[in-house]
């Protein structure tokens, strides 16, 4: 907290005086009849509690301005939030149109101030006056009018006596921190456990779907295992035996998916039994052609030239994706 002013300790204000000053300042009504700017009617400042303010207190004020219909306050003319004087800050400003009465609209400015006046006795201070410009909202109109908001008083009070009795330990002037409320950690802990369980369950479901360890050796995710093995083998893709091993991995994936040994001639029947892989008919056909060339052909190296390793890896990945998409759980959920 900043103390921007100190006053010599004179009289201490009595509560009755503060109350009287508050009642006086509670409502300041100012009627302005400006002939040049007839568009502006009455300006009323309402200050609900202009007394008993201590250092650092926030307090509100409402300014009601009557303006002719069609006039609106210019945002640029409103007081800016921020320090107004060395002891006063404006916290926030809001403006809202009110009801229409006799051709005049009542504009309401809500202001929040904060005082930093370190008073030594009860003291009357004046909130600075300001001007709000109203402009006609009609198209291409340049008419404007100024509403003068007068200053109004507030009463600030000291927090402590002027000369506190001396004590041995200055810390005795300090008051202990208000005790931290004892909160029950039970619900938060239960919530934490619940979210942890939810997270683990989600992880388990994801692992099951993606066939991660330890759920990777399932017949329902044969292609996921094959794709994993192919990806591992692709690290040494220059190796001839790695290519053959990758082909074998895909063979075993097909076998496990179908529950029998799938040979090249079985491909149409396999696709009929497993329509999930229908979109992969062409890559599978090329796979079997490559496998025949690699394992049974006269020129095993030809397989690689016709169906290179990256194609093999891509096909394995697509098979695993099709397997996931066509999983029984998914199909039921989709239907």
């Amino acid at each position: 907290m900043r103390a921007r002013a100190t006053m010599p300790p004179d009289r201490m204000p009595s509560p009755a005086r503060i109350a009287r000053a508050g009642i006086l300042a509670a409502s300041v009504l100012l009627l302005t009849a400006l002939p040049a700017a007839a568009q502006i009617g009455a300006v009323t400042v309402r200050s609900p509690r202009p007394f008993g303010l201590f250092l650092g207190d926030r307090f509100d004020a409402t300014v009601e301005i009557e303006a002719a219909d069609g006039f609106a306050p210019q945002a640029a003319s409103l007081p800016k939030p921020g320090p107004l004087t060395y002891w006063l800050d404006l916290g926030s400003v809001a403006v809202a149109p009110g009801p229409l009465r006799d051709g005049n609209r009542l504009w309401r400015l809500s202001l929040t101030y904060q005082t930093f006046y370190a008073a030594l006795d009860v003291r009357r201070l004046d909130i600075p006056a300001f001007t709000v410009t109203f402009a006609s909202e009609a198209a291409r109109s340049t008419t404007s009018a100024a509403a003068e908001v007068p200053s109004w008083p507030i009463l600030v009070s000291p927090l402590r006596e002027v000369q506190p009795p001396p004590v041995a330990d200055p810390t005795e002037y300090m008051r202990p921190e208000s005790p931290v409320p004892r909160r029950d950690p039970g619900p938060a802990r239960a919530l934490a456990w619940a979210f942890a369980a939810l997270g683990l369950a989600g992880l388990a479901l994801l692992a099951r779907d993606r066939a991660w360890w330890p759920l990777h050796r399932r017949p329902a995710r044969a292609f996921a295992a094959a794709a994993r093995q192919v990806r591992r083998l692709s690290a040494r893709s220059g190796d001839e035996s790695a290519y053959r091993d990758a082909l074998l991995a895909l063979h075993r994936g097909l076998d496990r998916t179908d529950g029998r040994r799938v040979m090249g001639e079985d491909l149409p029947a396999f696709l009929a039994r497993h329509p999930a892989y229908g979109a992969l008919a062409q890559p599978l056909d090329r796979f079997f052609a490559a496998s025949r060339a690699a394992f049974f052909g006269r020129d095993p190296a030809a397989a690689r030239r016709h169906w290179p390793f990256p194609d093999l890896v891509a096909t394995a990945r697509r098979l695993a994706a099709a397997e996931r998409a066509g999983a029984p759980g998914r199909a039921e959920a989709a239907s």
């Binding site: 082909l247 074998l248 063979h251 075993r252 076998d255 529950g259 029998r260 040994r261 040979m263 496998s291 394992f295 049974f296």
Partner: peptide, 8 residues
Amino acid sequence: VLATVPAP
């Protein structure tokens, strides 16, 4: 037998 023996 045919369904069990891996090929290739």
